[in-house]
């Protein structure tokens, strides 16, 4: 029932050349609802719990496709998304009218060329706290928190994932089907990713490494699209 209406609406909008803006909303989630920082989440069937204190990551190189055909590539496409600042969740993409896409593709993290390019501003400014200094390079994905499972000081865990040089490349490309055109959410099931880590054995990553690559590769499965 809904579909024909959308198509008709779309047709009218397209005909008038109005559809020109897409609002992509990144939606970090935990246990099926919106992530709340510093909230104590209990792990299913146990007394163990987990709190997320920091959650930041880069979304870059956004592209829209119709099947295999590239329709749109965002220029200067670097977005830092920070769970502590909900204004960073919404990305507005300005399109030319009459672009009918059904796939979105983007990277989590900063590509190697950009990592070699020297000082940059905006979301890429090193004051944003997403930059390694002793061995330079961007942190692609940052999550910090507490869990009784972690044996580190104050039960902390710290995962700063990054690395761009050949064997330690952590850049992730995500491609998702989209059946909405103007507004949609990209959900991220963070609990699904955390569950892959044995916090009793692993509680920190803070440099490019094999472990950083392994945990980054597991990110690809936590994304889904909804209205």
């Amino acid at each position: 029932m809904k579909k024909p209406i959308i198509f008709i609406l779309l047709f009218i909008l397209k005909w008038n050349g109005i559809i020109a803006q897409v609002n992509v909303c990144f939606n970090p989630m935990f246990d099926g609802s919106k992530l709340v920082l510093n909230k104590q989440y209990f792990i299913a069937n146990s007394t163990d719990s987990i709190q997320i204190e920091k959650f930041k990551f880069y979304v870059t190189n956004i592209e829209l496709f119709n099947n295999d055909q590239l329709l749109f590539k965002e220029k200067n496409s670097f977005h830092l998304i920070d769970a502590a600042d909900s204004t960073t969740f919404n990305l507005m993409i300005n399109l030319e009218p009459n672009i009918n896409f059904n796939q979105i593709k983007f990277n989590i993290g900063i590509d190697s060329i950009t990592n070699y390019a020297g000082a940059m501003g905006g979301d890429l400014d090193p004051t944003k706290g997403m930059y390694w200094t002793w061995q330079n390079g961007y942190i692609n994905f940052k999550i910090e928190g507490k869990s009784n499972l972690s044996i580190a000081k104050s039960n902390n865990f710290v995962f700063h994932l990054g690395g761009y040089q050949n064997t330690f490349s952590t850049l992730q490309t995500i491609q998702l089907p989209v059946q909405y055109l103007s507004v949609f959410k990209i959900n991220m099931a963070i609990d699904k990713w955390i569950n892959e880590i044995d916090l009793t054995k692993q509680n920190h990553i803070m440099s490019p490494s094999k472990e950083s690559v392994i945990l980054s590769n597991k990110l690809s499965t936590i994304f889904s699209v909804s209205k």
Binding site: G118, W134, N136
Partner: peptide
């Protein structure tokens, strides 16, 4: 060689 660009 930990740093790959003079700016950084």
């Amino acid at each position: 060689g930990a740093i790959n660009h003079l700016d950084m």
